[in-house]
């Protein structure tokens, strides 16, 4: 299992970052679901070692969705976006980073997952569809609506999409 251990050592940080965004900025939850996903991968390693990264990302997206499904049963205080300072500088970068996470947290879970996989993990539409178990058309429509919603939530904080 040296190769699995290498995978965990090498890729955990990147996967944690994906998990963090999928969980809408909840680091504790991100670590929990990442550890859970990786521990499950241990027993399946021979079957999934061909593309472990893709498997891990799909499993993270599913775990994050299930987590949010459970959480959504409890009433939760809405996240408020803070006022945007006018001046740009180091503080502004911090605000940017904070705002994007808080905006993501306000998106429906599938929309959030689509944006994270497409724009943070650079997955193609087809790969994103495979990871989330939906059609390419759904990915396209969720991307379009998600970007529009992000623009609404973040205002001029997000100027372009790559």
């Amino acid at each position: 299992m040296q190769d699995f251990e290498d995978f965990v050592a090498l890729r955990s940080q990147a996967l944690l970052r994906t998990a963090y965004l999928l969980c809408g900025g909840d680091k504790g939850a991100a670590e929990d679901i990442l550890q859970d996903v990786l521990m499950n991968m241990y027993g399946k390693w021979r079957r999934i070692s061909s593309s472990p990264e893709a498997y891990a990302r799909a499993a993270l997206a599913n775990s994050a969705a299930n987590r949010w499904r459970r959480r959504s049963r409890k009433p939760e205080a809405p996240l408020e976006l803070g006022a945007v300072p006018a001046a740009r500088g180091h503080e502004q970068q911090v605000v940017d980073a904070d705002i994007v996470v808080r905006a993501l947290a306000q998106l429906p879970k599938k929309m959030r997952a689509v944006l994270v996989l497409r724009f943070f993990d650079d997955l193609s539409e087809a790969e994103t569809a495979r990871a989330l178990g939906c059609g390419v058309g759904t990915v396209k429509s969720q991307t379009s609506r998600g970007l529009a919603r992000m623009r609404e939530l973040m205002g001029e904080q997000v100027l372009t999409w790559s």
């Binding site: 699995f4 955990s12 724009f119």
Partner: peptide, 27 residues
């Protein structure tokens, strides 16, 4: 850009010390 913003938001993140060992033992 959105990607830039996401990268900035996660730039400081790393797994806790001992994480790899925990995953291996738990797995």
């Amino acid at each position: 850009e959105l990607k830039q913003a996401m990268e900035a938001a996660t730039a400081e993140l790393d797994v806790r010390p001992g994480f790899v060992g925990d995953v291996m033992a738990g797995g």
